[in-house]
Simulated scan of single mutants.
Amino acid sequence: MGPLFWRLCVINGAVFTIGTLALAFSPATVSSPVLLREILVLGAGLAIILITNALLLRRSLAPLTTLTALMHRVDLHTHDRAVDRGNGDLTYLIDSFNTMLERLETERSSASAHALAAQENERQRIARELHDEIGQSLTVALLGLKRVADRAPAELSEELQLVRDTVRGSLDEVRQVARRLRPGVLEDLGLHSALTALAADVAPAVDVTRRIEALPPLTPEVELVIYRIAQESLTNVVRHSKASSVRLSLRPDGPDLVLKITDDGIGGARAEGAGMRGMQERALLIGARLTVTSAQGTEVTLTIPGVIG
Score class of each variant (00 low, 15 high):
residue 207 D to C: 05
residue 232 E to P: 03
residue 304 I to K: 01
residue 50 L to A: 11
residue 210 R to L: 05
residue 105 E to W: 08
residue 53 N to F: 10
residue 182 R to L: 08
residue 256 D to L: 01
residue 103 R to G: 15
residue 110 S to R: 14
residue 113 A to Q: 13
residue 99 T to A: 12
residue 211 R to C: 04
residue 249 S to V: 01
residue 152 A to T: 00
residue 262 T to N: 15
residue 305 P to K: 11
residue 150 D to T: 08
residue 78 T to K: 09
residue 79 H to K: 14
residue 13 G to D: 10
residue 233 S to D: 01
residue 136 Q to H: 09
residue 174 V to C: 01
residue 143 L to M: 11
residue 215 L to M: 06
residue 42 L to C: 10
residue 122 E to S: 12
residue 291 T to H: 06
residue 154 A to W: 15
residue 183 P to N: 07
residue 225 V to R: 07
residue 2 G to P: 10
residue 90 L to E: 08
residue 124 Q to H: 15
residue 285 L to K: 05
residue 66 T to A: 12
residue 169 G to I: 07
residue 174 V to W: 02
residue 254 G to R: 06
residue 106 T to P: 07
residue 120 E to P: 06
residue 298 T to A: 00
residue 166 T to I: 11
residue 235 T to K: 01
residue 32 S to V: 15
residue 30 V to N: 05
residue 198 L to E: 03
residue 214 A to P: 13
residue 273 G to N: 09
residue 197 A to L: 04
residue 109 S to M: 08
residue 216 P to G: 05
residue 121 N to L: 10
residue 167 V to R: 02
residue 256 D to K: 05
residue 142 L to D: 01
residue 267 G to P: 06
residue 284 L to F: 13
residue 92 Y to D: 15
residue 114 H to D: 14
residue 260 K to Y: 03
residue 303 T to C: 04
residue 62 A to N: 14
residue 192 H to E: 07
residue 50 L to V: 11
residue 113 A to H: 09
residue 298 T to V: 00
residue 271 A to R: 10
residue 63 P to N: 09
residue 111 A to T: 14
residue 192 H to S: 07
residue 264 D to T: 05
residue 145 L to R: 04
residue 287 G to R: 11
residue 133 E to D: 15
residue 118 A to I: 08
residue 149 A to Q: 01
residue 194 A to Q: 04
residue 17 T to W: 10
residue 73 R to D: 11
residue 290 L to I: 01
residue 159 E to F: 02
residue 182 R to I: 08
residue 280 Q to E: 02
residue 267 G to F: 01
residue 7 R to W: 15
residue 82 A to Q: 06
residue 36 L to Y: 11
residue 134 I to S: 06
residue 109 S to H: 13
residue 110 S to W: 14
residue 188 D to H: 08
residue 135 G to V: 03
residue 83 V to T: 12
residue 306 G to S: 12
residue 157 S to L: 02
residue 248 L to M: 08
residue 45 G to M: 09
residue 145 L to K: 05
residue 148 V to P: 00
residue 114 H to E: 15
residue 280 Q to D: 04
